[in-house]
Design a protein around this nucleic acid. Structure first.
Lengths: 152, 152
DNA sequence: AATATTTGTAATGTAAATTGTTACAGATTA
DNA sequence: TAATCTGTAACAATTTACATTACAAATATT
């Protein structure tokens, strides 16, 4: 199982926007911070916008959250960039024998368990909001600052 | 996020062996039922054997479970064919800026939440044993049999 | 209105992962 | 010894992910 880097990139940019609302976060700036190509960021922007999490504006790079950071969860961001469909997450082997008892039933047998696993994932990610992450980020910065590591 | 077909194939063959202990389940037979190449099955066999879930014997195809089906869970099978390491499941974007507050902290910030998600997945899959699946299969067969659907 | 800036997106290239296939050595049973 | 099957290596084909270039469309500033 592998979740593409787009998820961590998406959280990254959302956290930049939520954590530093006064900064102008363009795809260029975000790409510099995330260490990837600006077009990757724009594609992530597009997906986040499509999921009603982000408001982007051509021209002057006014990217803002579409709703309060207390109402945006990791699951929301996950769904924006990855599919939440069980069939997309757990890929079934095709061409199973329809004359075999196991082959003809394996799909319908396994499906509910896979659904359950996705639900567990959803429940866990839904507990964490962008506001939580922002606070954790601030805490980290504060603790590093007290150790004089910020400008080190 | 995508889990390779090897997982559903692995469950498939384990269920064949658990459900029909009197049948000789060779890689050839399993491949026929799963609709894939025998070598795929042998590779899955090797992984299941390596995870101490299966006992295979060259020569006469005596594949048997390494322990009772009540003590083999979906998580065991998952771990046999996929990595259970968080870093392998959730892939981070690399090359983040170390001079940016978000870039330098995003990894350590996100890691515990990803660990938590994997733990949720593990908890869910650990609840289901091969014996459970076997019973569900038997139920399905019985119910189809009562509708006269078994032999087409 | 003209210009500069930035997003949106298509097209293309490249690398990595997955799956399929052939081939054959090694183990086991009869 | 012969037949059968697993274990693996080698390689091709396919798919997916990520990077990059290029340019159209939208927006704000002057």
């Amino acid at each position: 199982m592998r979740v593409s880097t787009q998820f961590s990139i998406a959280v990254h940019v959302m956290l930049m926007i939520a954590g530093f609302p006064d900064e102008k976060i363009t795809s260029e700036v975000a790409a510099e911070s995330a260490g990837c190509n600006p077009v990757i960021i724009r594609n992530v922007f597009a997906k986040l916008k499509n999921a009603n999490l982000l408001i982007t504006k051509s021209g002057k790079g006014k990217t803002t959250l579409a709703r309060p950071d207390t109402e945006i969860t990791l699951w929301d961001i996950y769904c924006a960039v990855e599919s939440e469909e069980t069939e997309e997450i757990f890929k079934f082997h095709q061409n199973t024998s329809q004359t075999c008892m196991v082959g003809s039933n394996i799909h319908s047998l396994l499906a509910p368990h896979f659904d359950s696993a996705v639900a567990a994932l959803k429940a866990d990610f839904s507990k964490v909001t962008l506001a939580d992450l922002k606070e954790e980020l601030y805490d980290t910065i504060r603790s590093k600052a007290s150790e004089g590591e910020v400008f080190g």
